[in-house]
Every structure is written in structure tokens, then in C-alpha cells.
Nucleic acid binder design. Structure first.
Lengths: 355, 355
DNA sequence: AGTACCTTTGTGTACGTACACATTCATATT
DNA sequence: AATATGAATGTGTACGTACACAAAGGTACT
């Protein structure tokens, strides 16, 4: 490995002082064009790299990051995102960074509005946003843009915003994947169905919409002739779901495979198990405790997982790169791998999650 | 977050000097029983945590880690393990650690013996071992044990050794997973086959053996009646493989699904493609460039992937924890998640790999 | 009691960066 | 020419740990 060049070396080579180099590295201004050029030449030539350790040691400023996401329940999707965030926080526990959560109810647009409204006034160093409601998010982001506060998205991107980075899944691919798994798990002559989200107007539902497109693309590419039945699953009212589902199955007795495009596949699985219905295969999204339980007992055939912890983890790392090292992200949109989890590989995924 | 306690604070509280605390933290000896007890009490009470940054900054000693693995070819299994190792190295490039590779030919026991023989004399701080040949590995490890040199395994564990940690897949689970995928991808009435490794006596082949057991367990649990044909695939001689395969298929014309228990599924896929045979589904292990290509063009149905980069990455991290922070691993055997990769989720896995 | 030797303990410095503060320089204004 | 002003630049210190070195204490022996 080549010997590391230090700031003092750079300064000597460029014929300036270490302070000037520091000002250039951190965009602190008050540098003449001549000095800037001289230093940047040396920088490019030597390939200077920060020493993150000494950098962290001498860091004075206290950064504050606000994490604006739906209420994170342990073992569910947002809970796992938060786990990734906290994991990264631990890695940087020796740096002066404060974290503050601004939760909102993902099913209540007013709660989101309230929560988001207060964020810019707190003048955070950066914000991690888990977006659900498009227009509220755009409002927040434009206020952050005005104040030059960087923000990154997890889970989904919202049009009309300017995030420093985004960490999510390719939802269209997710749809194609769940379509393929549904097809694999069911006999050729069976009818199939897809359950989307009842609620509309929010972004998670829009994820569900994009997945639906992907799923149809997959079956389209197969020249799959038969119609795929569609229905909605109420997220909020379990009793309503129950009736809807049983009603749907009565009307469509030949349906033997169902894809649930949100993370509520376990609700369907539990209802079918209670009714002793055993010949219907179900695939769904997100490795939550409930879905995990159903894969284990065989009532769910597969889970498509978007690596929520990795999203949260990378979001924090991206922000730290921006704040501490002033490194802009070249690759703004990062797609996480989409895992396929079945009974046989569930335990090893669980072990990692438990760490 | 609770305010961090510093070494000087500990010293004051225990009524000793910072030097004594340091000696206890690093097991440097020359400490009276009384001091030790006093400090350890305070340590336990306050929950002292190293500041990795300042620690790294002032670290004088140069550690040397030897990485003893089969020759790593870019884009193949060991190449990906090395990628993970190098990724971790970058994260620690500000710490005084030297890395040295000791490659060997995984198909040549003498090359392994030669390579391993020189390692203990170099007095490395620690060794990462990718084991292939059992007895050579035991010999190396016992010499390292004598010298109190810690070592960790990647890919596989060898009996009769005392590693500080191991990072691998659950090979039995891998076998069950590939069995399930094989079953999913093929029609119910098709005959199935499994191709193992021709070579025996080495550990990678023993991985293949364990996978075979897992696969049979899976089909056993199904009460799968028909026999599963078995054959071997020569890794070294392509022409021999070709003949063997075509011969096998002629003798077993009803076989419509084949599981290849090592990473050479692409060889089979390419041969069948060349023969215009399109109705045989193949599943195999490891996301190598060749397997990846075949999944993309549809000649391979699925790849089971053991996260080689994660293995390498964690191996380095584990060693650094041991060397720098003297933290023994409580959970000696770490299983990596086992990914199922099909055409639809291949691109997002690739993106991560490209980073 | 004096000496030698070993164990235990304390002290001081270096690591490379961030940032506050001091200083110099250039330009405009009176 | 003298002064004020603001930009540009240089200097010095703190961060918390690791480790070298110095100092003190204890024991055994002559």
C-alpha cells in the first residue's frame, strides 16, 4: 500500500500552510484562486485520503440528524430500517452526532404533516426521510432545499425532490420476482390472485402499484393467458379483511395462489390456516416477525425481502460521508438486493437480523 | 446517549494512573492484584468503551495478517471472498495493518502443503484461512496454536482446530435449499439428478457432500418416491465433462432437472445450450461471472449464493476486534445468509457486488 | 545497612486532523 | 500618506489513546 500523504505534506508541496489546505478540503472559503489551484493540483496528483480516525478525533462540531419515518415497530418493516440506522450509529458513536427521531403515523396524513412541519425549524445537519405521503414530503424537501440541509430517502423516492442519495428496492423488479415465485409455487392449471393495498394516495401504496406493474409484466412475458384476479386487503381493520378474504375465495374457488403486495401476507395466511384451507400458496413482502412465523409453520410459501436494515445503515453512512467528508454521492439511487426467503433459508437470515 | 467515560476517568475513580488502566485493558501484565481488581470494578460499573478512533490514531504496532486461501480469480468464488477482505482492509487503511496473501492451488495438495508450511515462521499477528485440504489445515493450525497466533476460517471449518471465529454457510441448509429450488423449477413427473464433485479428500468436496445430505433430507421429507440420479462433474477437464454429461443424459433421457452442487453449473448449462437442449432446468451454487451470465440468458434457473464477500469482510473485522481491542468472539461460528438468485433479482445483487 | 534486581506505578509525548485565533496582505477611502 | 476594512493565510492547541520511559516500591542477598 502506498504511504499515506498527510495534510502537512500537501501544504508543503503546494507551498501553502496546513490551514489553507484544510479550508479547501472543507469548503470553508477565504482562499485565493491561486492557492486553491495549487492545492487541488497536489491533491489530485497525490490522491490524498482523509484519515477518518484522526478526523473523527478532532471533530468539534456536533451534528444533528433527524430521522423522519413512520413509527417503527420492532420486528416490522420500519423497525428493521431503524435497526440498520442504529447499527450505523453505533459504528459512529465516537463522532459527535446526535440522532433524533420524528415519527409519524403512516396511515394518518395529518400526523405526517404535523411531524414534518417542525423539522426545518430545528435546523438539523441532515435528515433521513422515510416517505409515505407525496405532497407532504415535497413540502418538507423544498424547505430543506431552501436551507441547504441535505436529506436522503429510504424505502422510496418522491418525485420533485433533490435528495443527496436514495436507498430502496427496485419495486418493479420486486413485482416481477413475486410474480415468478407465485408461478413457481402453484400448479400450472391453478388460478392466481393478487392482493394490493386498500389505501391509496400514499407512497407505500404507490410501491404496491409499481409492484403490481412488475408482476403483470412478468406474467405478460410468459404469455400467461388466464386472468389474474385482483383484490384489496385492508391494513387497518382485521375483521373487515377477514370478511373480504373469505368472500373473495368463495367467489373464486379455483384460486390456488395469492401474492400479497404489501407486508400483510401473514394476515391472509393466518385466516386460511384458521379455516383449515391448506391448498392455497401465499407469497408476500418483508421479513417481519409475523411473516417469518408463517414461513416457519408453512402457511406462507415465500417472502420477498428488501433489506430494510441495509437501507437504514447505508442512509446513515451516506449522510456521514456528506457531512464529515464533504463527499457527494455519485450514484444517487442505490438499489438494495431483493432476497427470496423460504423455509429453508429463513434461519440464516434470522441469525444476521439478530445481530 | 450516556456520556463516554475515558481512561483518565477510570484511573481517577480506581485511584490509579492511566498507565495502569491501559495495562489492564491490553493485558500487558505488571499489575498488582489489588490494582487490577479496583480497575476492573470500575470498568464493569461504568461500561467503558474504547474510542476506536483515538485508539487507531495512537496505535504504534504494525500488525501483519496472512490470508491463506486458494488462488483468487476475479469474479469467481475465492475472488469474491478476497473482494470482501479488501473492502474491509480499505475501511481500516488508517490502521497499521499489513496484509499478505498466501495463495495455493485448490486442486493440488502439494501446493497447499508448500504454501502453508511457511506461514508460522513468518510470525503473523493473525491468519485468515480458506481451507481445502483437511490434514494440511490441521497441521498449520496446530503450529499456530503453539505460537498463540489467532486464526479465523472462511468458507468451511476443519475439525480438530481452534479458530477464533468461522464465517461460512450452513451447507446442509444449502443442500435443502437447492433441493427445494430444483423441485420447484421442474414438472412433478420429471426425473431429477444431482451432480457432485469428482475430487474427494478435500474440504470443498466435503462441502459438496454435506450439501448432498441436505438435498436428500429435503426430498426425504417430501416422501419423494423416485430415485434421484447421481453423477460427478470433473472440474479440471472440460472435454471429459462434456462426454460424461452427454453420456449421462443419453442413459437418463427422462431427467429434466439437475442440481450441480459446486459452482460449475455454468459448464453444464453451456453444454446443454450448445446441444440445443432446452427443457432441462439447472440450479447451482455461487454467483460467479459465468453462472451470472447463464442466469441472465436463461440457461441456468437459479443460483444459491453464500455471500463470499461478507465472509471475507467479517473475517477481517473479527481479526481486528481480536488484535486491536482484545475482544474474543462469543459466537464462534457465524453463518452467512444463503441467497436465492434468479433472473429477476440478479441485477440488484450485481449492483452491490460492483461496489 | 547497602546493593542489586525485579515488580509495579506514574508521566509525557506522538499520532493527524479540525478549528479558533492571530497575523499578514491587498485594496479602498479619507 | 495614513488609516480602515476585509480577505487570505499561518499558527497553535485539543481530541483520547498507546506506548516508551522514568520513577518508586519491594524483596533478597551480601
Amino acid at each position: 500500500m502506498a504511504k499515506q500523504v498527510k495534510i502537512k505534506d500537501i501544504a508543503k508541496m503546494a507551498g501553502v500552510s496546513a490551514g489553507t489546505v484544510d479550508r479547501i478540503l472543507h469548503n470553508r472559503g477565504n482562499v485565493s484562486a491561486a492557492s486553491r489551484e495549487a492545492v487541488e493540483n497536489v491533491l489530485a496528483r497525490t490522491g490524498y485520503k482523509y484519515n477518518i480516525h484522526t478526523s473523527a478525533v478532532s471533530l468539534k462540531k456536533a451534528y444533528r440528524i433527524i430521522i423522519a419515518i413512520p413509527t417503527a415497530i420492532k420486528g416490522e418493516y420500519w423497525g428493521n430500517i431503524q435497526r440498520g440506522i442504529e447499527h450505523a450509529m453505533e459504528e459512529y458513536s465516537d463522532v459527535a452526532i446526535d440522532f433524533e427521531y420524528a415519527y409519524y403515523n403512516q396511515f394518518d396524513i395529518y400526523s405526517c404533516r404535523d411531524s414534518f412541519a417542525g423539522i426545518p425549524d430545528k435546523n438539523p445537519s441532515a435528515v433521513i426521510i422515510g416517505a409515505t405521503f407525496a405532497s407532504e414530503t415535497v413540502t418538507l424537501c423544498s424547505r430543506l432545499d431552501e436551507k441547504n440541509i441535505p436529506y436522503v430517502f429510504v424505502d422510496a423516492v418522491i418525485e420533485g425532490t433533490h435528495p443527496s442519495a436514495t436507498f430502496s428496492s427496485d419495486q418493479n423488479a420486486c413485482g416481477r420476482i413475486i410474480g415468478r415465485m407465485l408461478n413457481l409455487f402453484t400448479p400450472r392449471d391453478a388460478e392466481l390472485a393478487v392482493f394490493g393495498s386498500r389505501r391509496t394516495g400514499n407512497e407505500r401504496a404507490s410501491n404496491s402499484k409499481t409492484r403490481m406493474e412488475g408482476l403483470k409484466e412478468y406474467f405478460g412475458s410468459l404469455n400467461y393467458r388466464r386472468e389474474i384476479k385482483e383484490s384489496k386487503l385492508s391494513v387497518l381493520d382485521p375483521e373487515e379483511s377477514r370478511k373480504d378474504i373469505l368472500d373473495f375465495l368463495e367467489r373464486n374457488p379455483r384460486v390456488k395462489g395469492i401474492a400479497v403486495l404489501n407486508s400483510r401476507g401473514y394476515i391472509l395466511a393466518d385466516i386460511l390456516a384458521a379455516q383449515q384451507i391448506k391448498d392455497i400458496r401465499i407469497v408476500t413482502f418483508d421479513l417481519t416477525v409475523n411473516n417469518s412465523r408463517c414461513v416457519e409453520n408453512g402457511t406462507l410459501s415465500a417472502i420477498i425481502c428488501q433489506r430494510p436494515e441495509l437501507q437504514g445503515f447505508h442512509a446513515v453512512k451516506a449522510i456521514i460521508r456528506i457531512l464529515l467528508y464533504n463527499i457527494p454521492d455519485k450514484n444517487i439511487h442505490h438499489y438494495m438486493p431483493t432476497d427470496i426467503i423460504i423455509k429453508e433459508n429463513l434461519p440464516v437470515y434470522r441469525e444476521i437480523y439478530a445481530e
